[in-house]
């Protein structure tokens, strides 16, 4: 695929997001210098973005486009954008199907925070509790598992993101995810590991 094709793909995603009507997506807000309940105790300044969407399959594409635009604005690499996109897509579908049981009136909140070395995402819903950590990894070596052709979304989420934490708070599902970004993330993690004595 050529660079022109990729750029056209991105432009198409941007148009997809731009074309959304307010009543389809709900409010989109931009915040800075804030942290959210449920996040790790990291008080450094970061740009924060929020979006709330109807819990419907047709909303997931625009959600991915929204997160992609934020990532692009913050200079994320193509592979980092793709990891966040596929994870967000699969999480959105899981919430719609398993937490809400396809309730068309339900809504999903998504918060994205950009720090110099990582992107943090928080998915919020009021559906049934669903702890993905309790679901075992599929055994892809088993031909019956492959033939069944279902249940691979969680594995994609786990492998695409660097940290995942779930908790249930006052009837709300909170799924917190981290994607480490860029060379600085790698350098920083090595410095921290050195300080802790994890690397000789």
């Amino acid at each position: 695929m050529s660079t022109d094709d990729r750029n056209e793909g991105k432009a198409m995603r941007h148009r997809e997001f731009d074309a959304l009507e307010e009543d389809q997506v709900g409010s989109v807000t931009f915040r800075q210098e804030s942290t959210y309940e449920g996040e790790s105790a990291d008080h450094r300044t970061g740009a924060c973005y929020e979006i709330e969407i109807p819990a419907r399959i047709e909303s997931i594409g625009p959600l991915c486009a929204f997160l992609n635009m934020i990532g692009e604005c913050h200079g994320l690499r193509e592979s980092e954008l793709q990891s966040i996109e596929i994870a967000a897509y699969e999480i959105g579908l899981n919430i719609i199907e398993h937490a809400y049981g396809f309730d068309p009136n339900a809504r999903i909140g998504v918060r994205m925070k950009m720090l110099p070395e990582r992107a943090q995402l928080l998915f919020l819903d009021q559906g049934r509790a669903f702890d993905m950590e309790s679901i075992p990894e599929p055994d892809m070596a088993d031909p019956h598992v492959r033939r069944r052709g279902r249940g691979f979304g969680l594995q994609i989420i786990r492998k695409s993101m660097d940290q995942i934490r779930y908790r249930r708070v006052a009837g709300q599902n909170q799924l917190y995810l981290v994607k480490l970004i860029g060379n600085r993330a790698h350098a920083r993690s090595r410095v921290l590991a050195l300080q802790k004595g994890d690397i000789a």
Partner: peptide
């Protein structure tokens, strides 16, 4: 882009 369900169809 391909989601897990699409991959599932192909694997199946």
């Amino acid at each position: 882009f391909i989601g897990s369900a699409g991959i599932g169809i192909f694997l199946s």
